[in-house]
């Protein structure tokens, strides 16, 4: 959250000297004072140092023309495009379209991934049947999936959602399966001693123990979703954040690409944070369960 919003909120024509005092200030503060106030705000401030440095470097690089303006648009231009696109509502509608694609794909890909991961983690038999095929299919390139998916789903939303879902399934299956497979046998033995039935084993042993891996998989699923969103919107779309970025590159208007990056980064962080909140809540529940 902090990093992304700092990029958005920072005034674009940033004087290049600004981050230096910022750095000195926050280090000073944290080293000199150890008060509660500083702890709380200092933590946020340290996270800002690097983005501010990068922003300064970007501004400096742009103003010194280290890289042609067409390829590294100056922060001011990006800011201007961001404001314009936001003001006209274009950016919001692109975000809405992409988010709905991601949302549906996450629902579908996530459930398939969890189901497959659980099935293969819990049953050696199922794993023996499914895993080899899964491993081959998981490595099919997205470029190849598109024409095949068009044959089955046409070129509407179903195409995009199915293509993104496929990308989401992979990390979720692998993390879920590994999370379950890595549960120490001792834990399962305990469950056997308590004569738990399967639902109980899943709810009381497997899920709590595999939770970190599960969420790791979900988070990586979100990442993969964004990656393939761009690919899918590159090949067959006329709206969405990915499309905006592809379009910007096609027309050598890289400020649009950077605006897309900022939007993707900001939304990604929001999704990440919300997943972490859910995870934290479940972790509490997990402690209660034991």
């Amino acid at each position: 959250m902090t990093a992304a919003s700092s990029i958005e909120k920072a005034p674009p024509p940033l004087p290049t000297s600004l981050p230096a005092p910022g750095l000195r200030l926050s280090t000073l503060r944290i080293t000199a004072l150890a008060g509660d106030f500083v702890k709380r705000f200092g933590l946020a401030a340290t996270g800002l140092i690097l983005p501010l440095l990068l922003l300064a470097l970007w501004q400096h690089a742009a103003s010194q023309h280290w890289i042609a303006e067409q390829l590294l648009p100056p922060p001011a231009l990006v800011w201007q495009s961001l404001v314009e696109l936001w003001g006209s509502g274009d950016l919001r509608s692109h975000i809405a379209v992409s988010l709905s694609r991601i949302g549906w794909s996450f629902l579908i890909g996530g459930s398939v991934g969890l189901a497959l991961g659980f099935a293969m983690g819990l049953s050696r038999q199922l794993k023996a049947y499914l895993f080899p095929t899964f491993e081959v299919v998981a490595q099919f390139p997205v470029v190849g999936w598109i024409p095949l998916l068009i044959i089955f789903f046409g070129i509407g939303e179903a195409l995009k959602i199915s293509a993104i879902s496929i990308a989401i399934v992979v990390p979720i299956v692998i993390n879920t399966y590994k999370g379950i497979a890595n549960i120490p046998n001792a834990l399962l033995d305990v469950a056997r001693v308590y004569r738990f039935d399967l639902p109980q084993v899943i709810a009381r042993v497997v899920v709590p123990a595999a939770l970190p891996s599960l969420f790791n998989g979900l988070r990586q699923g979100v990442m993969q979703a964004w990656l393939s969103l761009v690919f899918v919107e590159l090949l067959a779309a006329s709206e969405g954040i990915g499309y905006l970025m592809v379009w910007g590159r096609q027309l050598l208007q890289l400020d649009l690409v950077v605006v897309g990056m900022i939007a993707v980064g900001a939304i990604g962080v929001l999704l990440d944070v919300s997943l972490r909140l859910v995870e934290a809540r479940l972790q509490r529940w997990r402690k209660v369960a034991f």
Binding site: I146, P147, I150, I151, G154, I155, G156, L234, L235, A236, A237, S238, Y243
Partner: peptide
């Protein structure tokens, strides 16, 4: 109702009557 498709996808779309 314009649909943006690259060359290969556009062929696939005609072949499957998606457009």
């Amino acid at each position: 109702r314009v649909v943006n498709l690259d060359t290969g996808s556009l062929d696939a779309a005609i072949a499957t009557k998606s457009v």
